[in-house]
Amino acid sequence: MLEAWPPPIFDPAGPYAWPITTLSWVLLAMAAAVLVLVVVALWLALFGSQRAQAKVGGTKIIWMAGIALPVVVLTALLLYGLWLTSSLSDEIEGDEMRVRVTGEMWWWRVAYLDDEGQPVSHDANELHIPVGQPVVLELESGDVIHSFWVPRLSGKLDMIPGRRNLMRIQADEPGVYGGQCAEYCGGPHALMGFVVVAHEPPAFARLMIERTAREQAPAPGAASQGAELFQTTGCAACHRIAGTDANGLAGPDLTFMGARRTVGAGILPNNTGTLMGWIGNSQAIKPNNRMPPYPVLSREELQAITAYLEMQR
């Protein structure tokens, strides 16, 4: 159930996506017009009268239709395209909300930043934004080149090791927008999905206050069997849950796992069954991802860990 598959490329939902869609349609229309011209010329050359054939075969038409016309048309298209998409490359003012999204093999690390650029809340594979205002993403990579792409909200931008690329996204309506890694990054690249959830500004502000507070507070379910198993069976070595001893950074942050919409980086709906299946044997779901299968867990242990993660919200 990849949210963004097939990519909804002709369905823009924000000001940084519609210019791209418009430009695509214009390019498509121009290409169709050129195709018609070429087919007509070919038809005339093959079946036209002597006069028509002489015209199509003359030097003049090569100068006119072969050189002059493309120069004019392509220059006009270039200027139009640059004008149309100028908002995509506007200078970033710096007063927009900022989120750092880091591409990892094969998931996304998400950190909401304060005005000083310090992370105040951590998440993974899911980004919450307010509607109607631009959000600046600091795109980075933890390993190889990835590409951030939420087709309904923006174009693609590569995440390059050692670089920080800035991109704006904006949603005009509340909703869920799927994303997908758009640069082959090895192994299960095709299963590296992403979800953007757009909320009305008051709901978004509440969510951020709750989450920032949660980062400083003890985790729910600390006394449960699942909490103990999370430490003793090795989960905590790779995963962090704020307010516990689990502070592994190799895998996705699980502080809000129970509230997340998806399991496995935007690829499965989050319910008890899919979560349990993922913990039990994620290799069968996303082959060669970096989480090992856990056939050592008993039925009760698997259920306890799953229940503990569902409390994390």
Partner: peptide, 8 residues
């Protein structure tokens, strides 16, 4: 496919 039975 919607609920993900095939996860397990």
């Amino acid at each position: 496919e919607r609920v993900g039975c095939a996860s397990c």
